[in-house]
Design a protein around this nucleic acid. Structure first.
Length: 562
RNA sequence: UGGGGUGUCGCCAAGCGGUAAGGCAACGGACUCUGACUCCGUCAUUCCGAGGUUCAAAUCCUCGCACCCCAGCCA
C-alpha cells in the first residue's frame, strides 16, 4: 500500500500523514461507531467514507463498532440493517466487528478504579436535582452534597448499584471533575445510570449502563484506535474524552471532529426521519424519497455514486449545506456509464402511421449503450401503431420546439422519420391520436437515413409494449432548509407521482429487481425491489436526465420538476 | 452575558508568508438518430470587516462583526 492518494487534501488526512511521517503511528486504525437505534442515512455515509476511506488509503483498517450503551433505544434489527448498509456501500470491516457492550465488564472495573482514586462518586441526587445543580451557561454549578463520600462508601454503593439493589434513577456514578468548569461536560458528568432493562447484545447481565462519554474513549483505547473521527458537536466532549483516558492511565487515541453533512431539501435527524415515517408522509424508512441508505438504494442510487458524492463534498470544519444537485449529479455520472438504455413511454399518446403496412412488424437491433459497444444490443419491434410521449406532441408548438407538431417532421429513434398529418379527437376535443406518414428510406442505415430533422423522440410499439407502473419522485421538501418548529409544513405534497399505465419496450418485462436503466430522453430508473413481481416490474425514477429544453421552456432556475 | 468552533466565487473546497487548485451550479459555443453524454471557452485583482507587521499577507498580530454547538441519568 502506498501512502500516495489522489483525493483532495483535508485536515484529517494531513494529520494522519504527519503522524505516520513522525512515527507517532505505524498504521492507521479508525472506527465507524453507530448506535443501533435507527437506520443509516446519507450523513452516516459521509462518516463511513471518511473512516473506511482513510483507513483504506493508508493501508490501515476500520472497525465497525456498535455504540450500544443505551438498551432503551436499541434493537438488533437496527444493527443488522446497519451492517448491511455498510457492506452495500462497499466497505469491509473484516474481523473487526465490535460492540461497546462487550467492554462493559472492563468499563465497570475501570469505574471502580476511578472510585478508588477518588475520581468518581455515587450521587443520590435525582435527575432534576442534578440538572439544577449543574448551573447554566453563565452560572457555575453547585457541588452535590454526596460529592465527598469516602472511596469505600462509593465503592460499596457502586457495587450495590451493579448488584441491582437500587431502583432506576435513584443513583448515578459521576466523575468528580469541576462543577465550576465553563465546559458543562466537565461539571461532574454522569458515568453510569441504573436501568433495569435487558440489552439487545449483552442480554440480562447488566442493570447499570455506561454513558456515551464514559464508554466511547475507552472503547477506542481498547481497540487501539489511532484517529477517532467524529462530528463537530462532540468537540466540547474532547476534554472529557481525554480526561478519562488520562485518569485511567491507558492508551489515549486522539479525537478529531469534522462538520456533519447537511443536504438541501431534506432532513437528516433521526428524530425527524422517524416522524416522517410515523406520520405517513413517506411509506417507510426505505421509501425512495428518504435520505436513508435503504431509501437511496431503493431509489436506484449506486454505492459508487454515494461514495463519489462523499468524495466531492470534502471534509471540513465549517457548517455547510450541500446542494442536492451535487448528489443528483453524482448518480447521473455513474449511471450514465453503467445503465443500459431502453425506451419507455410514461404518458402514452397513440401515433398511427397511415402509410405503414397494416400487418408488418419490423425488428430493429439497437445498442444498449451508445458509447459502449461492449454493452451489446437488443431488438425492438416496430409496427404501424406506436406510443409516443404526450409531451412530445404539441398542436401549437412554441418557438424552438423540436418535436412533433402538425405538418412537422421528427425522427422516431432507431426507426423512421415521420411527418404529422393530422390528429383524432375525442368528444371533448382532446387529441387522443396523432396521425402521420413515414418515409421508408429514412430508417437507420437506409438511403435517406442521413436526412436531418430537428428532433428525435422515443416510442414503443403499441402491439408489443408491456404496461407498467412507474413512480416519479421529487424532492421531499419545498424548502432548501426545512428547519424550525414548522419544518413539517415544508413537506412537498407532490414528491411522488405514480403513473400506472406506462408503456415499456418488451425487453423490460423480465428486468431484475434493483436493475437500473436509462429510459432514453427521460432519466434513470430502477426496478423496485419490493413491489415488483416476476414479469411485472415497477420502476422508480432515480433522477431525471438534465433537460436544457425544460429549462428554456419554463425559465426554471432550479432542478425541481414541480 | 460563560465555554468551544467557523467565516475563501451561488453551493462545497484546496491553500499553511511569495502573489487565489478543483468539483457542482451558471453562461457561451461545438458535436449529436437521447434537447442526454462528450468537448471547448467564460466564471474571485480577491479571501467576513477595520487596522497593523513585512519587500511581499487569504495565510502573522490586534480589534471588531456574523453564524454554529453545549445546560440528556441520548449518542
Amino acid at each position: 500500500m502506498t501512502i500516495e492518494t489522489t483525493q483532495t487534501p483535508n485536515f484529517i488526512r494531513a494529520i494522519i500523514e504527519e503522524d505516520l511521517a513522525s512515527g507517532k503511528h505505524k498504521t492507521v486504525i479508525t472506527r465507524f461507531p453507530p448506535e443501533p437505534n435507527g437506520y443509516l442515512h446519507i450523513g452516516h455515509a459521509k462518516s463511513i467514507c471518511i473512516n473506511f476511506g482513510l483507513a483504506g488509503d493508508f493501508g490501515g483498517r476500520c472497525h465497525l463498532r456498535f455504540d450500544d450503551t443505551n438498551p432503551a433505544k436499541e434493537e438488533v434489527e437496527y444493527a443488522e440493517s446497519i451492517k448491511e448498509s455498510v457492506r452495500w456501500l462497499g466497505f469491509d470491516w473484516g474481523e473487526h466487528l465490535y460492540y461497546a457492550s462487550d467492554y462493559f465488564e472492563q468499563l465497570y472495573q475501570w469505574g471502580e478504579q476511578l472510585v478508588r482514586q477518588g475520581d468518581a462518586y455515587v450521587d443520590d441526587l435525582s435527575a432534576d436535582e442534578i440538572r439544577a445543580y449543574r448551573g447554566t451557561l453563565t452560572e457555575t454549578g453547585k457541588e452535590s452534597p454526596y460529592r465527598n463520600r469516602s472511596a469505600d462508601e462509593n465503592l460499596e454503593l457502586f457495587r450495590r448499584m451493579r448488584a441491582g439493589e437500587f431502583p432506576d434513577g435513584s443513583r448515578v456514578l459521576r466523575a468528580k471533575i469541576d462543577m465550576s468548569s465553563p465546559n458543562l461536560n466537565l461539571r461532574d458528568p454522569v458515568m453510569y445510570r441504573i436501568l433495569h432493562a435487558p440489552h439487545p447484545h449483552a442480554g440480562e447481565k447488566w442493570c447499570i449502563y455506561p454513558m456515551y462519554d464514559y464508554a466511547h474513549g475507552q472503547s477506542d483505547s481498547i481497540e487501539g484506535i489511532t484517529h477517532s473521527i467524529c462530528t463537530l458537536e462532540f468537540e466540547d466532549h474532547r476534554p472529557l474524552y481525554d480526561w478519562f483516558l488520562d485518569r485511567l492511565g491507558i492508551y489515549p487515541p486522539r479525537q478529531y471532529e469534522f462538520a456533519r453533512l447537511n443536504l438541501t431539501y431534506t432532513v437528516m435527524s433521526k428524530r425527524k426521519l422517524l416522524q416522517l415515517v410515523q406520520d405517513g408522509d413517506v411509506r417507510g424508512w426505505d421509501d425512495p424519497r428518504m435520505p436513508t441508505l435503504v431509501g437511496l438504494r431503493r431509489r436506484g442510487y449506486t454505492p459508487d455514486a454515494i461514495r463519489s458524492f462523499c468524495e466531492r463534498i470534502g471534509v471540513g470544519r465549517s457548517d455547510s449545506w450541500i446542494d442536492m444537485s451535487i448528489l443528483e449529479e453524482s448518480v447521473r455520472e455513474d449511471l450514465n456509464e453503467r445503465a443500459p438504455r431502453a425506451m419507455a413511454v410514461l404518458r402514452p399518446l397513440k401515433l398511427v402511421i397511415d402509410n405503414y403496412p397494416e400487418d408488418l412488424v419490423e425488428e430493429f437491433t439497437v445498442a444498449n449503450h451508445p458509447q459502449k459497444p461492449e454493452a451489446g444490443s437488443r431488438t425492438i419491434p416496430f409496427c404501424r401503431e406506436v406510443w409516443i410521449e404526450t409531451d412530445d406532441f404539441l398542436e401549437e408548438p412554441p418557438k424552438g420546439f423540436h418535436r412533433l407538431a402538425p405538418g412537422q417532421e421528427v425522427r422516431l429513434r432507431y426507426a423512421y422519420i415521420v411527418r404529422c398529418t393530422g390528429v383524432v379527437r375525442d368528444g371533448a376535443g382532446n387529441v387522443i391520436e396523432v396521425r402521420c406518414s413515414y418515409d421508408p428510406d429514412t430508417h437507420t442505415g437506409g438511403p435517406a437515413a442521413g436526412r436531418k430533422v430537428k428532433g428525435v423522440i422515443h416510442w414503443v410499439s403499441a402491439l408489443h409494449a408491456i404496461e407498467a407502473e412507474v413512480r416519479l419522485y421529487d424532492r421531499l421538501f419545498t424548502e432548501p432548509n426545512p428547519a424550525g418548529d414548522e419544518w413539517k409544513s415544508f413537506v412537498n405534497l407532490h414528491s411522488v407521482e405514480i403513473l400506472t399505465s406506462c408503456r415499456l419496450e418488451p425487453s423490460l418485462k423480465e428486468a431484475a429487481p434493483e436493475s437500473r436503466y436509462q429510459f432514453e430522453r427521460q432519466g434513470y430508473f430502477c426496478v423496485d425491489a419490493k413491489d415488483s413481481t416476476p414479469g411485472k416490474p415497477v420502476f422508480n425514477r432515480t433522477v431525471t436526465l438534465r433537460d436544457s429544453w425544460a429549462k428554456l421552456d419554463k425559465g426554471d432556475q432550479g432542478n425541481s420538476k414541480a
